[in-house]
């Protein structure tokens, strides 16, 4: 029974299965990549103030200011199943209040075809480095690390930490609000 409808139906179903199989093959072909790359991070300056984050409350919290240097080549991470990389710089530290604190200071989206070499000098942070309390002053162990979230054309969404972190400490005195 070869009516028009049954033919159209068969072609549509076959096209769908072929597209699904190809997409799955594309995912399988890149499923075992480790997406790692070396990273070099340094801070040029670190100071801390005690101010109110008015978007949270009137309470005064520690606000860190840092500038950082960052070098990484993301080109090797791109393959045919990488649509975009979401790259973010995280500060991780421990305080009396909290066992784990993670604050994203800077991020960047690199899409396929865009320039994928990161080379920043004395860069300011993109987001405020507010602590949840007063745990930044004279904190001796703040670790900066660069990580990325790989967005594929289709497949899993791995989160990868770059090889290379940098640990710095904040000064023991608050900076005056003028400087």
């Amino acid at each position: 029974m070869n009516t028009f409808l049954s033919r159209a139906n068969t072609i549509f179903a076959f096209t769908l299965s072929v597209v699904a199989a190809l997409t799955f093959g594309c995912f399988l072909s890149t499923a075992f990549e480790d997406h790692r790359a070396p990273v070099s991070i340094k801070t040029a300056k670190a100071m801390v103030k005690r101010v109110s984050d008015f978007s949270v409350s009137r309470e005064k919290n520690d606000l860190g200011f840092i500038t950082f240097d960052l070098k990484a080549d993301m080109n090797p991470l791109f393959n045919w199943n990488v649509k975009q990389l979401f790259i973010y710089l995280t500060a991780q530290y421990e305080t009396d209040n909290n066992k784990v604190n993670q604050v994203v200071l800077w991020d960047k989206i690199i899409q396929r075809g865009e320039k994928a070499v990161i080379d920043l000098n004395s860069m300011n942070t993109k987001y405020y480095f507010f602590d949840d309390g007063n745990g930044l002053r004279s904190n001796r162990n703040v670790t900066l690390s660069l990580s990325w979230n790989v967005i594929p054309n289709a497949g899993t969404l791995p989160k990868v930490d770059g090889d290379g972190t940098y640990t710095f400490e904040f000064p023991t005195e608050y900076s005056s609000s003028r400087s």
Partner: peptide
């Protein structure tokens, strides 16, 4: 941080898909 979470907010029917920016864990 960096996780893409789907979360519900009181008073909104539709869940939101966004990325975690800050974490404080006791």
């Amino acid at each position: 941080v960096g996780d893409i979470v789907v979360f519900k907010v009181e008073g909104r029917d539709i869940p939101i898909v966004h990325r975690v920016l800050k974490v404080h864990e006791r």
